[in-house]
Amino acid sequence: MTGSPGTRTVTAGSMTTKGAKAAYGLAGLAGLLALMEAVPRLGIVDERFLPPASEILGALAAELRTAALWTALGETLGGWALGLAIAFVAAVLAGVVIDLVPGLRAASHSTIEFLRPIPSVALIPLATLLFGASLGSTLLLVVYAAFWQVLIQVMYGVADVDTVADDTARSYGLSRWSRIRNVVWPTALPYIMTGLRLAASVAFILAITAELVVGSPGLGLEIQVAQSSGAVATMYGLVVLAGLIGIAVNLAVRVLERRVLAWHPSVRGEVAS
């Protein structure tokens, strides 16, 4: 979980060991599996619409042995990573430029506040027209969605620079570039990493969406194909896979955040406790 460590010393209560917590977690997962197995088997929901958990996992295992699935997976993750990278670089540059040019922050506020809440799925028809069912569509949606997440955080971050630190750097005669490198960047970095974390999961959602709706190649398209060909267990299996990848994406960004911010008090405190 996200969590703000340091405050959770008291709440542990009876849950003292990590082992007990893991045991409960496993029990919860086992309960979910048992429920998913029992509901269709007992006929509460028709098996044609909700196959038992064992069948879903079996179908997933069968899919994992096909090359097509791995290709699709590669395509999804490729589109995700490329889109995220483009959005990240563009947003950081835009954020820094907005900070550097005097007056631009005030002038761009209304535009950003208007463009930001536009749901990127509104661009689906445009993507379809411009790029069709290809990587371009995925990239358009992913970049639009992820860009704002990072930009907002960058703008908060660069605004948070300690004036004393900045003035000190100034009076020691640090050049503009050196000030950005040594004062602005470390201040903004935690914000930027938060933006990256938010953007990473949004980008994954939009990558899958583009494949599902526009038909760009990837995991989403596989789900769509499984659905329209009536391979119900396979479809559920792929949905489970999408969830697992979503978890992996979250974990990967969190690990990155921890490494990049290893010097930051919030992370150092976490390790110490």
């Binding site: 979980m1 496993l26 979910l32 899958i208 989403g220 949905v239 999408a242 969830g243 979503g246 978890i247």
Partner: peptide, 14 residues
């Protein structure tokens, strides 16, 4: 918690 984290990680459009 693990169950919820899993459901949250599924991209809603699927």
């Amino acid at each position: 918690e693990p169950v919820l984290e899993f459901f949250r990680a599924i991209p809603p459009p699927v």
